[in-house]
Write a protein that binds this DNA or RNA. Structure first.
Length: 340
DNA sequence: AAGTTCCTCAACCGCAAAGAC
DNA sequence: CGTCTTTGCGGTTGAGGAACT
């Protein structure tokens, strides 16, 4: 039978939008709101595909769009987010107010991808995104509307219950789900950190699957958006503690050269942003936000390659009044993981 | 000044998830 | 529960302009 085209293409205009078309579209959406893209062009009197209208609105006409060049801060943010999320432009765009996924994607392809080689180097915090909340989704597809709404209203738990009701979760999966609810991020440790997990699998597909959090196992899928928000909140929190750690894990000797923490998918959830933060407790999470400045973007040539944190460049902020114990706990946890 | 190459970015395309029926 | 429709996503294309020869 085949799939019906998104719109009747005969007689529809393609190519650049004219000012008049922009005005018509803008006026219509102002009156009727977004949505119903399929019927919109007909109702608005536009000879355009609904998809085209949607794209034009999202990428160009929306009022909250930021115009002008990408700032250095934004660029830095894109690099870091890309290192974490891969080519999930919509997620990246979600953390750059006023920027669209298309804009960021274009900017990356034209400006940053070529510089990606410059990011090479360094060792090695290898985070398996399949264990990160929100990492468990393949490319494409849209986020659940229900989840989007729930995320807005802070109703993630309800959504998960709904998923349970659908019978999606087997007992073990439900257990894992529960665990995930308790953890902001899940990072696991490999038996050896000389083998980055993301490259353990061979082939582009697998690398991509790994980077996007899709594993070969049919594990439960997490909500990509809401959980990624959690994840990125953890990564991009307001406070930026820095870890200062020696290579042998024995202390805080920043002069001892770079060290590494390698984490992969082979073992279960847990890790610096999950377990450690949890260990520290809610209040202490404030000082456990990862310093993305210390996230070494030298994640090798492939965007799907594992993340690298050079935590020799990080140091833990110990607030006045002393959180020495917390500092030590963090480092201790990091190296526990590192040496598992 | 003309021709060619390179770069940028708006727009298109196909796929897949989610929801509706 | 299966099928169809709608929507969102990421990859890709190509027009237009800038830079270079």
């Amino acid at each position: 039978m085949g799939r019906a085209p998104c719109c009747e293409k005969v007689g529809l205009k393609k190519g650049r939008w004219t000012k008049e078309e922009d005005e018509i579209l803008g006026r219509y959406i102002k009156e009727h709101g977004e949505g119903s893209w399929r019927s919109l062009p007909k109702n608005a009197g536009l000879l355009r595909c609904g998809k085209s209208c949607r794209l034009r609105w999202i990428n160009y006409l929306r009022a909250d769009l930021k115009r002008g060049n990408i700032s250095e801060e934004e660029e830095e943010m894109i690099i870091k987010l890309h290192a974490t999320l891969g080519n999930r432009w919509s997620l990246i765009a979600g953390h750059l107010p006023g920027r669209t996924d298309n804009e960021i994607k274009n900017y990356w392809n034209s400006h940053l991808s070529r510089r990606a080689a410059d990011f090479r180097d360094g060792v090695v915090v290898n985070v398996d995104l399949s264990k990160l909340p929100g990492g468990g989704k393949r490319r494409g597809g849209r986020a659940s509307r229900g989840i989007m709404a729930a995320a807005k209203a802070g109703k993630e738990k309800k959504v998960k219950e709904k998923e349970k009701d659908k019978g999606k979760n087997k007992a073990a999966e439900a257990e894992q789900q529960l665990k995930l609810e308790e953890e902001d991020m899940a990072v696991s440790t490999p038996s050896s950190h000389s083998q980055p997990c993301a490259t353990d699998k061979s082939g582009e597909e697998q690398a991509q699957a790994s980077a996007s959090g899709v594993t070969s196992d049919d594990g439960p899928e997490e909500d990509p958006l809401a959980l990624s928000e959690e994840m990125m909140s953890a990564l991009l929190g307001p406070v930026s503690p820095k870890l200062e750690v020696g290579p042998d894990g024995s202390g805080m000797d920043s002069d001892s050269g770079p060290s590494s923490l390698v984490v992969d998918s082979e073992s279960g959830p847990g890790g610096p942003t999950g377990d450690v933060a949890q260990e520290l407790g809610e209040n202490d999470k404030a000082i456990m936000d990862w310093d993305l400045m210390a996230l070494d973007i030298s994640t090798a040539g492939d965007m799907w390659d594992p993340l690298v944190w050079d935590y020799a460049d990080m140091d833990i902020v110990v607030p006045d009044g002393g959180h020495q114990q917390q500092q030590e706990d963090v480092v201790s946890d990091l190296f526990f993981l590192d040496n598992m």
